[in-house]
Structures are given as C-alpha cells and as structure tokens.
Write a protein that binds this DNA or RNA. Sequence first.
DNA 1: GGTGAAGTTAGACAGAGTCCAATTCTTATC
DNA 2: GATAAGAATTGGACTCTGTCTAACTTCACC
Lengths: 147, 147
Amino acid sequence: MNAQSMPMTVRPEDERATLSEVLRGHGVGPTHQRIEIARALFSRMTHLSADQVLAAVNQRHAETSKATVYNTLKLFVEKGLVREVIVDPTKVFYDPNTSPHHHFYDVETGEITDIDGDRISILGLPALPEGKVAAGIDLIIRVRGAA
Amino acid sequence: MNAQSMPMTVRPEDERATLSEVLRGHGVGPTHQRIEIARALFSRMTHLSADQVLAAVNQRHAETSKATVYNTLKLFVEKGLVREVIVDPTKVFYDPNTSPHHHFYDVETGEITDIDGDRISILGLPALPEGKVAAGIDLIIRVRGAA
DNA sequence: GGTGAAGTTAGACAGAGTCCAATTCTTATC
DNA sequence: GATAAGAATTGGACTCTGTCTAACTTCACC
C-alpha cells in the first residue's frame, strides 16, 4: 500500500495504524511527529509549505518543532512519500501526490492545482545531458487573473 | 529592436547607446545602473541570480546597491526584458532569453540549460482555470549525475 | 533496567529578498 | 545653463525560509 492508495476515509482509531504502515512501507520509522506530519499531508491531499505543515500539526495537539518538520519533509521526499513543488520563489511546497503530473500555479493567489500527467504528452523530449539521469519532470503553467 | 536581436558584439563606444535603446524600447528609462545591469545579463546571455548580477556589475566599476539590483530585475521582468526562472528553491534566476523555451536544471550543480521551445510540443494542454490567463509555461526537467 | 542508536528540540544562525526614509539623479521647462 | 519636480538610488534594518548544532528524549533490544 502506498500513499495514493490510502483510503480517503478511515475509522479514527485506525488512522494512526494506517499511517504507520504507509511510513514503514517506505522505509520510514513511524514516530508520533512523523505520523502527525503525514496526516497533515495525506488527509488534505493538497500542497502544503513547511510552515503550513507546522501550523496544521501544532493546531491539532502535537507540539512539533520547526526542525523536525523540515527534517521530516526532507526525509519524506527522499523516501518518495511526497514530492517537492518548486514554483513559488519564496517557499517550497510538498505534494502528497507522487504520481506523474504537472502543475498550474496562480502567481497572484499562490494556489497550486494538479494537472494529471496523462492529460499531457510531451513530444520531442530532448536527450538528457551527458551522464545525467532524470530527477523529475514538471510542466508548470503559471496563470493569473484575466486583465 | 529587442533584447534578442541585439548584436552579440558591438563597438564598446556604442554599447551603452545600444543598451539605452533596448531599455527605452521596453519603456524603461535608462540610468547608469540599469544599463550596467542590462549589460551583465545581455552580454553573457546566461542565467544569473540577483547576487551574481550584483557581483558582475560591481566588479566592473559601477557601484550599485543590492536594493537597486532587486528593483531593476523586478522592473525588467515586468517590462518583458528578462524572464524569471524558478527552479532552485533558494534563489530566483533571470534569463535574458525571453523567447518560448524550457529548462534543464541540474539539481547537484545548479546549472541551468535552455531547451528550445520548438524542440518540444505539448499535446492536450488543458484549458486554463476559469477567468485566468497564462503568465508563462515552463517545462522543467531536473537532472542529476547518473548513480 | 541498561545501553546505544535514532529521533527531536530550542535557539542561534545564514542567506535571499523587502522596506523605508534620506539623498541623488534625470528630465522638462524656462 | 538654472531650476524644480518627479523618478531612481541608497544603506541599513528588517523579515522570512530554511539550516545547523549540541543537548535531550525515545525506542528497540539485550
């Protein structure tokens, strides 16, 4: 089971256990803090910045430090649980949807919306530079309110 | 005449005049500082961050403040003289090539390379969100050294 | 219950970018 | 060329995101 296949609704008493399994399945030892951070991301299935994750976690009950949120988000990226979305020059967003997809980014509101990967084909994708491998492909369509 | 059609080599005594014309043609009043910043970008035709622009300008002779570099780069973006490239979570790069194109970004070295827009076709581009207009389309291919 | 490794923490720190009030420059007009 | 008004520039303080470190806590295992 991976993050994408996690049921959208689970009985509250099962939620922690389910999240623990998701973490373990990605080679991440489950701790209170990591479970809370995973819940913040996966229960919303939306793009959150580090400070939004921190706020969401601490609003609930669990005191979690800034350092742990940053450590954990970096770990989740390494382990493939979430994906970094770099569209806003001021902060990184974390996307719990790790399937191939692209992004609309509203430069005025900061809102990020997914574009399913299979709705787009990219033809003539150039050969990667010598000795390099792909680490991610993201088509970013910046939009703003009509004039 | 626009930035792209500016001759790659000009007689030094004409360079300031040429850059002045480019700026004026984009509705930007030419000042010493703006000319120096434009020269830093257009003489290299490469992707520079704000601090690289600052270093390039001040290395030459013209003392220019950090605030002016940031003000000017923002103005250049508004006026279509350069394009922001947002691929690195720690800083924005400015690209003097404003024709439609995409980017390779090496996550290990930080190197950015252009991909000509006409080498790639994007099929099935989804409709923009209601009431929105496109502000930029950038396919970012992140690469890293092979394992 | 003891031990070591893994995880968490507060708070200091670094770097990019913003803001502001004071100064300097540009430009239009005479 | 002098002048005045608006535009541009400036240093420095400031904000914010993210990193680092050394101490502390938790956990698994014996």
